[in-house]
């Protein structure tokens, strides 16, 4: 494997998780495994509802208490199990060591408090700085986000800012305590395309210059491929394929990844019509046995009634598909 050799910050092993609802348990995660090392940018891709957010919110224990239940596997975040941390210990991990940028910047800031107050509050929560020092730190962070008049922005309320501006504020906030890991959960999905590129650039630049690891969640293969060193392709709460971005894009192994790439205007082989992946995600209330992608898979055969393991098919790549496993063994 040619994965970076830094410390493992986050390691999720075979995690299964369900939401207990009145209609029955929704099996959102069905054995997800992934890891993130210091300083790398890791992408998680997959269509809506495949469990990207749930996976990362489980890692920081931000899922609604009572509804979400871990039914198998484990999480190690900075070497300890977040499920075993006390509320207070968790508070010192969140914001300080790992912070999250969420998808929807519209409501992600408190509407009744000034921008500056909100950044300063986070800084002072985790660092021994007085108000003046925290304020000047906040304005420096905003400047790094290419905000030219940080003082004016800090005096503003969220409703006075555009979506892109709010997202920059949230990114500044996420980086404010020099965390080792940042989870960016579709940070640009709600923004228009021109702003998207800017925001992606800001995240990438800030992360590489500070050595912060980033987990970048997106349903957009094109975005992820610009940004990430490695990728995890998620399908129905399982990893379908994992590997370096370059290798996955060059030769996608899993039929689902292939379909995703065929759907991309920029990445699809030229002159071929763009495709939609036929079918939908399986019903997570009652997932089918065997490979979860079977109902939509062109290559499915008899073997696929049992669950394919996530197996190495190349030095830097793993895929959960019987076909690829067979081919690897045959080779």
């Amino acid at each position: 494997m040619t994965e970076p050799s830094g410390d493992v910050l986050l390691e999720i092993t075979d995690l299964s998780l369900e939401f207990r609802t009145y209609r029955g348990p929704i099996k959102a995660l069905n054995g997800v495994s992934l890891n993130v090392r210091a300083g790398e940018i890791v992408g998680i891709v997959g269509e809506s509802g495949c469990g990207k957010s749930v996976t990362m919110m489980a890692a920081t224990r931000l899922l609604p208490k009572g509804a979400a239940h871990i039914t198998g596997g484990g999480i190690r975040l900075f070497g300890s199990d977040p499920m075993k941390l006390s509320e207070r210990e968790l508070q010192h991990v969140r914001g300080r060591q790992v912070s999250t940028i969420f998808q929807e910047p519209m409501n992600a800031l408190n509407p009744t408090r000034r921008i500056g107050e909100q950044i300063v509050e986070v800084i002072r929560r985790h660092q021994r700085l007085d108000n003046a020092a925290a304020t000047s730190k906040a304005s420096g962070l905003l400047r790094d986000m290419l905000i030219s008049e940080p003082e004016r922005i800090m005096q503003a309320y969220p409703f006075e800012l555009s979506g892109g501006m709010r997202q920059r504020v949230l990114i500044a906030m996420a980086f404010s305590c020099e965390p080792r890991l940042i989870i960016a959960d579709e940070p640009t999905t709600a923004l228009d395309v021109t702003v998207q590129a800017l925001i992606l650039g800001l995240i990438k630049h800030k992360a590489t210059s500070t050595g912060t690891a980033v987990v970048f969640i997106s349903h957009d293969m094109a975005v992820v491929s610009q940004l990430c060193d490695r990728l995890y392709v998620l399908y129905a709460g399982r990893v379908a394929e994992a590997g370096t971005t370059a290798s996955v894009l060059a030769a996608p192994a899993h039929p689902y990844t292939r379909a995703l790439i065929r759907c991309l205007p920029g990445l699809a082989p030229p002159k071929q019509p763009l495709e939609q992946i036929p079918g939908t995600l399986p019903d997570l209330l009652d997932p089918p046995a065997g490979c979860l992608f079977r109902a939509r898979c062109r290559e499915a055969d008899d073997r696929c009634v049992s669950v394919p393991p996530l197996a190495a098919i190349e030095p830097a790549r793993r895929a959960a598909c019987w076909r690829r496993i067979e081919e690897t063994q045959a080779a």
Binding site: Q91, R94, F102, N110, P111, V122
Partner: peptide, 16 residues
Amino acid sequence: EDYVRTARANGLSRSA
């Protein structure tokens, strides 16, 4: 609301 989640994700205390 999302901003309450932001506050929790930033490690603010329960009372804050």
